[in-house]
Amino acid sequence: MAVHNAATREIVYKVAYHGPGMCGKTTNLRFIYNTLPGRQVGNFLVLDTAVERTLYYDFLPVVIPLDDDYKVRFHLYTVPGQAYYDASRKLVLRGVDGVVFVADSRGDRMAENEESLAMLKRDLTDVGLDYATVPLIMQYNKRDLANVIPADLLTEKLNERGVRSFGAVARDGVGVFETLSAIADLVTGRN
């Protein structure tokens, strides 16, 4: 739910990074956190499990200060990828303004990608949103690994809406800011 607060001169958007377990959602946020200057990122909250998988969510506020004292915040969340964290995912998707679907490009992960996409559709419906209309960007991550599926095939299998998609190696930052910029364009209505 976008919030425009004229009193504090702030505009806030909520963006969720969704995708199967270990696809690189947290890695996207970590690269953003490590790259932007300190005044443009808040504290990075990670609620993970002992095996370093996201249990509840990660939260990273990105703050863009403007010349006229306005601040535009993009609150970035990740959802837990594993199917059994269904309830936690819905908390994060509640009131979301845009979604980045992070797919794992490896061939042996296609079934997990498709299962995660099905969960996204179902979870959005459960929180009163519609997959067909929610602002959405696709990221095909781990493009540097062996046995990756061609991007065209990922698009054919996962991108039925034909939204903008980006290849990425989130660990090295490749494609991370392109993805962030694209979802920012959508939620703000710039493009």
């Binding site: 958007y13 863009i64 920012a184 703000t188």
Partner: peptide, 16 residues
């Protein structure tokens, strides 16, 4: 349409 929001998105595009 909020011009400030567009300016922030443009800034991120520049970062990208």
């Amino acid at each position: 349409i909020l011009p400030q929001a567009h300016a922030a998105a443009a800034y991120l595009a520049q970062m990208a």
